Simulated scan of single mutants.
Amino acid sequence: MLDFEGSRNEFLNLLAEMGEEPAFVARARAPELALDGLLQSCLAKRDELLRWPQFHFSILASRVQRDWSRLSRWMKGSDAVRRLENLDAELSLPQSPRPSWIVRDRSALQRFVESGTRFNIHWQDFLECLDLEAVNRPRHDFNRYYVIEKACAFGSERFCQDFIPLDMIDHPFLIRRFPPLQLPELA
């Protein structure tokens, strides 16, 4: 089958040709796949929870024709208009619904802020309740076994000198990655 004259490198190449990969390669890929899956799941849930705030924001934007300064008298803080401009970039829908002629600027603003506040509460709850074991187990295993598996594959630990252990994923990481909406404060 295999003779003992070949090098480890030839053996690793043979494994690759046969569709197999060394354990250390799979070990390095697993944390990335787990994190990508978690981030995609969070993004999908965030998009789902943002539907109503986006709807209310679109009505507000259409109502004031994106002239956010029209709303400044009903908001506190000098950065309120800037917050709405930032939200415009984050929440814009391709096609805005037509606002009802009954809806006034202030009530549209209030509906959006209330909807955004509910989103922030539900989003925070969602992130804090996530079980991070599925994403942290591959990271833990990578930190524990990667160097050993790579050293065994290459027959030397010198190929592992640049190893950097992975940090565990925690809820603050997810909140930084997917922050709550920065809503203006109503006066």
Score class of each variant (00 low, 15 high):
1 M>P: 07
2 L>N: 08
3 D>R: 12
4 F>Y: 07
5 E>Y: 03
5 E>N: 09
8 R>T: 08
8 R>A: 04
9 N>V: 12
12 L>N: 11
14 L>R: 12
14 L>S: 11
14 L>T: 12
15 L>W: 00
15 L>V: 01
19 G>T: 09
19 G>I: 09
21 E>K: 15
25 V>E: 01
26 A>N: 09
26 A>W: 02
30 A>Q: 09
32 E>Y: 05
33 L>W: 02
34 A>V: 11
39 L>K: 14
39 L>D: 05
39 L>Q: 13
39 L>P: 03
43 L>C: 06
45 K>Y: 00
47 D>E: 15
47 D>Y: 03
48 E>L: 08
48 E>T: 04
49 L>K: 08
50 L>H: 08
51 R>C: 04
51 R>V: 13
52 W>G: 01
53 P>A: 02
53 P>L: 03
61 A>I: 07
63 R>H: 04
64 V>P: 01
64 V>A: 03
67 D>Y: 01
70 R>P: 00
71 L>H: 01
73 R>T: 13
73 R>H: 07
75 M>L: 12
75 M>R: 11
76 K>F: 00
77 G>C: 05
78 S>I: 08
78 S>N: 11
79 D>N: 12
82 R>A: 15
83 R>Q: 15
83 R>G: 00
84 L>V: 11
84 L>H: 07
89 A>F: 06
90 E>V: 08
91 L>V: 09
95 Q>W: 03
97 P>I: 09
99 P>K: 06
103 V>W: 02
105 D>H: 14
108 A>I: 14
111 R>C: 07
111 R>D: 15
115 S>P: 02
118 R>Q: 13
118 R>D: 08
118 R>S: 10
119 F>S: 08
120 N>G: 10
121 I>M: 03
122 H>Q: 14
122 H>N: 13
123 W>R: 11
124 Q>T: 15
129 C>S: 14
130 L>W: 02
132 L>Q: 05
132 L>P: 03
135 V>R: 04
135 V>P: 01
137 R>K: 14
138 P>I: 10
138 P>A: 03
140 H>E: 14
141 D>M: 10
141 D>A: 07
142 F>P: 09
145 Y>M: 14
146 Y>M: 02
146 Y>L: 02
147 V>K: 06
147 V>M: 04
148 I>T: 14
149 E>M: 06
150 K>D: 02
150 K>F: 00
154 F>R: 10
156 S>A: 05
157 E>Y: 07
159 F>M: 05
161 Q>A: 03
161 Q>L: 08
163 F>Q: 08
164 I>C: 12
166 L>G: 04
166 L>N: 05
166 L>A: 03
169 I>T: 09
173 F>K: 14
173 F>C: 12
174 L>Q: 10
176 R>V: 05
176 R>H: 02
177 R>Y: 01
178 F>R: 10
180 P>A: 06
182 Q>G: 06
182 Q>Y: 02
183 L>C: 08
183 L>F: 04
184 P>D: 06
184 P>K: 10
184 P>Q: 04
187 A>G: 09
